[in-house]
C-alpha cells in the first residue's frame, strides 16, 4: 500500500509548502486573472464590432448595397434622375401657368380700374347734368356751375362770363378765387376770351403750369357756353387746385358737357325769370283793369 492509495483513510502529517511553489502559484493565478480580463475585453470589443457590422449592414440595405449593389445603385439613380427631370418639367409648367394667371390677374385689375374710371366719369357727368337742370332759378344755376367747376374739375380760380347780345360784351357774373371786379368784361372776338366766345370752341393754354400769376386776359382754359351756334357766355379758368396736376379725359368730357348744358340751364333760367317778371307785370295790369 502506498501513500496514494485511495482506500487509505489514515490521517497524514501536514507538511509545509515550499516557498518557490507558492510564488509560482501566485504568478499562475495572476496570469489566469489577466487572461480573464483580456478575454472580457476581447468579448466587449467583439460585441462592439458586431454592433458596428449590424449598423453597416443596415446602412448597406438602406443604400441598396446588396449583393448586386453596383447595378441596383445605377438603376436607382436612373429612376431618381428621371423623377427629378419630370419634377423639373412640372415645375416649369407650373411656373408658366402661374405667370399666365398673374398676367391675367393684372389684366383683370387693369380692366377693373378702367371700368371704375368709366363709372366715375359717368357718375360725374350724370351728377353735373342732373344738378344743372334741377332748378330754373338763375342764381341757383350759377351756384351749381361754380360747384361743378370747383368740385368736379378742381379749378381754383375761374370766372363765369355772360354775353350781352346788344353790346357784344362778355361780362363777369360770378367768380371763384378772384373778385368779380378783377375780371374785366371782354369784347366778343378780342383777346383769348373774346375769340373763344366768337369761334365757339374750347381753348386750352399750351403750357398751363407756366402761368403762376393771375392775369384776367390769359386763362388756361376757356369753354364757350353755347346752344348750337348761339353763344351764351364763356367760362374762363385761370388756375387749378394744387393737388390737380393736369386735365384728365373726364375733364375734357366735363368741359364739353359744361359748354352745352350750362348754356341751356342759364338760358332756361333767364327765360323763366323773364317770363315770371312779365307774368307779374301782366298780372299787375289785369289787377288794375279789373279792380
Amino acid at each position: 500500500m502506498t501513500d496514494n492509495d485511495p482506500k487509505d483513510t489514515t490521517p497524514k502529517p501536514v507538511t509545509a509548502i515550499p516557498t518557490d511553489v507558492s510564488k509560482k502559484g501566485e504568478e499562475i493565478l495572476n496570469i489566469v486573472q489577466k487572461g480573464a480580463e483580456f478575454t472580457h475585453e476581447l468579448l466587449q470589443e467583439n460585441e462592439k464590432l458586431r454592433f458596428r457590422v449590424a449598423q453597416l449592414e443596415e446602412m448597406n440595405v438602406k443604400l441598396g448595397h446588396g449583393s448586386q449593389g453596383g447595378e441596383n445603385e445605377e438603376a436607382e439613380l436612373k429612376i431618381l434622375r428621371e423623377k427629378l427631370n419630370s419634377l423639373e418639367d412640372e415645375r416649369s409648367k407650373l411656373l408658366e401657368r402661374y405667370k399666365a394667371v398673374e398676367d391675367e390677374n393684372k389684366d383683370f385689375a387693369n380692366r377693373y380700374i378702367d371700368i371704375e374710371t368709366e363709372n366715375n366719369n359717368l357718375a360725374n357727368l350724370y351728377v353735373a347734368s342732373y344738378q344743372l337742370h334741377s332748378t330754373l332759378n338763375f342764381n341757383e344755376v350759377i351756384r351749381i356751375i361754380l360747384e361743378i367747376i370747383i368740385n368736379l374739375i378742381g379749378a381754383e380760380r375761374f370766372a363765369i362770363m355772360l354775353l350781352d347780345e346788344k353790346t357784344q360784351m362778355l361780362s363777369t357774373v360770378a367768380t371763384e378765387g378772384v373778385e368779380i371786379k378783377d375780371v374785366p368784361a371782354s369784347k366778343l372776338g378780342e383777346g383769348v376770351i373774346g375769340k373763344c366766345g366768337e369761334v365757339g370752341e374750347n381753348y386750352f393754354a399750351e403750357n398751363p403750369g407756366a402761368q403762376t400769376e393771375f392775369n384776367p386776359a390769359l386763362p388756361i382754359v376757356c369753354v364757350p357756353m353755347k346752344i348750337k351756334d348761339r353763344i351764351i357766355g364763356v367760362i374762363s379758368i385761370y388756375s387749378l387746385l394744387q393737388q390737380k396736376e393736369g386735365f384728365s379725359k373726364l375733364d375734357y368730357e366735363l368741359f364739353t358737357l359744361l359748354g352745352g348744358q350750362t348754356a341751356t340751364a342759364v338760358f332756361s333760367a333767364k327765360l323763366y325769370s323773364e317770363s315770371e317778371r312779365k307774368l307779374s307785370t301782366v298780372q299787375g295790369f289785369i289787377d288794375l283793369l279789373t279792380k
Binding site: S134, E147, I148, N151
Partner: peptide, 16 residues
C-alpha cells in the same frame, strides 16, 4: 354743403 358733391359721394357709395 354742396348738393352736387353730396349727390356724387352718395351715388358712389351706394354701390357698396
Amino acid at each position: 354743403d354742396s348738393p352736387t358733391m353730396r349727390q356724387l359721394i352718395s351715388f358712389t357709395l351706394k354701390r357698396l
